[in-house]
Nucleic acid binder design. Structure first.
Lengths: 225, 225
DNA sequence: GATTGATGGCGACACTTTGTATCTCAAAGC
DNA sequence: GCTTTGAGATACAAAGTGTCGCCATCAATC
């Protein structure tokens, strides 16, 4: 039937089945989270909603947290795919960056109520979850590094840190009422990324842990070009 | 009725006691969350950790979600107090704003691992929780409105939206390694708030005066991630 | 100072959820 | 046909949940 080069031909169909069941579990979980919140999700509910026996569920995931982690990974993965798509559109780096950030903001805005993006915050070992999240961060950081190299963006702060800034700032889109507001948010966020005439001072002061406000900046209102 | 000066003296001591027990519950919850994550917190564990009977716990809170909500409220309240303190320091509006934002960023940075600020994301009725969070948002929005009025900050975007932007952007401090990075983040965030020569309004660039198309919207959602 | 009333704390009970061990069955491979 | 492999359901012990009712305590009243 199949190519006999593969020793585990039977394994392929079973893998496909497991995958479909897994997807059903994740879908059911998403629905339950959207309805009752992540805290009240139980293995029993998930099993019933997914249409499988409860004991069977344990053959896929050991506990609720693992399910939520997997769900979160899937979500981020999908988002990352959309962002990659947006990044591949033609245009100069600045335009592409804007397209990516706007895409991300719109995704965040789309998922209000659904806690998919926020889930990472309360999974205990957030570091474990960091898989897709890391890739997302790295992806944005790379774009930002490009922009900094071409002079479109500020280079006085590491692209890594700017990526964190951007991603967090744009999650504010989840609280916004409409897409026009989302676009304004993207503009504001981008404004924070552009080169400044008052760059962050590198190290005029030694390593001190005092909190007190450092020297006041006199910033000019004109940010020409 | 002997002493009519203080009719409910008994009520005061009992209230004090209830408050202390309540604080103990919240402290115990915080410890449990820090150790095992919010998902695995149970009423039994909280009761034992707080040193009270489980049934007694139900006289204070009906379920885990309520406890987490109360804990979150307390945290935000404390943060708000610190921010108010920072805002009352002398200085011009711009300096005060920077002090407040830096304080907030440092608080976010301080609480890495502890999910106190992230909890709002997964409480089901986040709108219910929004009490202190709303005040925090309004507090920052007010500062931003001041800055916009004095010309130190951009006025092409509603202070309301800028507040959401700022608070979200600064939560990125939770992922930063040291305080120097936190200060850089504050600078980047502030850069997004300053006036720009390319305001967000699509048209209406005729005169130097911008018409505010956007009216302040009313409803918000969860604030932190 | 004894009684009454109201309130906090806790033991106990019935019920649900959890995690696992065991069993059955369907399909691939010989 | 017979064996093997693994998915899926049933069964059970342990833990968690929500509630009722009893007791101790303290304020207020006689």
């Amino acid at each position: 039937m199949y190519s006999d080069g593969v020793p585990k031909l039977w394994n392929e169909t079973i893998e496909a089945h497991r995958n479909s069941v897994r997807e059903a579990i994740l879908d059911a979980t998403a629905a339950l989270v959207a309805e009752h919140g992540p805290l009240s999700v139980t293995m029993s509910q998930v099993a019933e909603a997914a249409g499988i026996g409860r004991a069977t569920l344990y053959k896929y995931f050991p506990d609720v947290e693992s399910i939520l982690a997997a769900w979160h990974e899937r979500q981020i993965g999908e988002h990352l795919a959309q962002l990659s798509d947006a990044a591949e559109q033609p245009g100069d780096p600045s335009e592409r960056l804007q397209a990516v950030l706007e895409r991300f903001a719109l995704i965040s805005h789309q998922h209000i109520g659904d806690h998919s993006t926020d889930v990472a915050a309360f999974l205990h070992r957030s570091e474990h979850v960091a898989g897709a999240q890391q890739r997302l961060h790295g992806f944005v950081a790379e774009l930002l590094a490009e922009g900094a190299a071409s002079g479109d963006l500020r280079d006085d702060v590491a692209a890594d840190e700017l990526a964190g800034y951007s991603l967090h700032a744009l999650t504010a889109a989840g609280s916004l009422p409409d897409q026009a507001a989302v676009r304004r948010l993207v503009q504001v966020t981008l404004a924070g990324l552009r080169p400044t005439d008052t760059p962050v001072e590198p190290s005029t002061r030694a390593a001190g842990k005092t909190r007190s406000h450092h020297q006041p900046h006199r910033h000019h209102r004109s940010e020409s070009t």
